[in-house]
Nucleic acid binder design. Sequence first.
DNA 1: ATCTCGAATGTTGTGCACATCATCCGTCGC
DNA 2: GCGACGGATGATGTGCACAACATTCGAGAT
Lengths: 227, 227
Amino acid sequence: MNAQNDDITPGARGRFERMHAELRNRICLLDYAPGTRLSEEALAAEFGVSRTPLRRVLARLEGEGLVQSVHGVGTFVTDVEIDELGQTYRLRLELAELNGKLDPVPPGPELMAEFEALLDRARTLSREADPKPYAQLIMDFFLAAQKLTANEPLREINERLYVRTTRIWLKSIFAARIDLAEEMAVFTREVEDVLAALRIGDLHAASLIQRAHISMSFERMRRGTAG
Amino acid sequence: MNAQNDDITPGARGRFERMHAELRNRICLLDYAPGTRLSEEALAAEFGVSRTPLRRVLARLEGEGLVQSVHGVGTFVTDVEIDELGQTYRLRLELAELNGKLDPVPPGPELMAEFEALLDRARTLSREADPKPYAQLIMDFFLAAQKLTANEPLREINERLYVRTTRIWLKSIFAARIDLAEEMAVFTREVEDVLAALRIGDLHAASLIQRAHISMSFERMRRGTAG
DNA sequence: ATCTCGAATGTTGTGCACATCATCCGTCGC
DNA sequence: GCGACGGATGATGTGCACAACATTCGAGAT
């Protein structure tokens, strides 16, 4: 999940991590939309391994709730019902606030620079039809914000919930049910506000801003899918 | 994890779930203490399958952080450092309170009866040297308390953190560094108080009581391991 | 024409043999 | 005597062939 992770680790473990990260990215960035069937044989051939190690990766993804394998039928990218999506978002709200309360870590100069760069990307990335750069941007922002807490279990759980839900939200956006330009403007505003809070060293405020935006973005999606 | 889950599901999926639940229980109930090496071949023989499906179970357990496989060495039950344990407990505190705020479900008569039965078991189970019944009791209480929220993601995460940490706490208790009789009395008191809160329908109070007890039990363990 | 049954096909699941890796221990050289 | 090297051993990781399963499609009876 880490952006700078080249993962050149040799041996079986490194290969596993590489394949896992690659497939998870494809799912999160909607290369594999919910409902897509994944071919074990094709993926194994692509990564240059047999089905055995690839199946181990799929088993991990299944444990993370990203795919589901059915005997004799296939392995499918999971979708999330609106009810469970709501439950997950209500939970993510609270966890976002915990980010500012549990083991907060003041950002160093390099992390601040990372946020600045993200803001530039957000301002540049207006009117983009392709989902990929947009998905990548908000994912990078999420990952950067995660660095504001040193609580490892919290980060792990945040990531877990994030990858399971954000792709569904992204799918809704690019199903043209939500105004993309508006979403982009709102997101830019979020980055600006978080950055302002971080500049004065108020991590709790930064987490509250994110909490508010998570809440509002889900509400916009809910109204978009309902209408 | 569900107590009443006989899991007579046929086919590959049922077999997988059975083996997974069995091994997780053994780890949680300290049949396999942290550091124990698990033999793939022995376990496969015990369950009457080959190594292949068993390895899938171990891969899942590795994703849950309960075991770790090392190429050429073995598969070991994980231990948890005191630092990460503290982070996890701080997180569990907050999540416990969320149990009473996110999608709370008033307990029906059968759930109340379940809590009553747990209280009886707690009062009966005094001065027991064997860790197993004690571990089983507090685990059953945890599972019963989980039924007080309908937020599925929250329950999943609670379970995830519970199985990773409580076994470590149990291990510390039975390393004779903590007075078992005292722990038992405190636990009985917790069940009584939660039951009292549930009788007047105050689920938030019930969650606050549990939050307080999680906090105190970790503090007792920390002092016990330090001294 | 329609319904039913069964073979064909394609997928995931399993068993087994072998490869790869880390550790241990005996032996050889010094 | 002591240290270093190398094979023996046993573990997990991989590849491949086959089994189990679900779906599809077509032939046959009604």
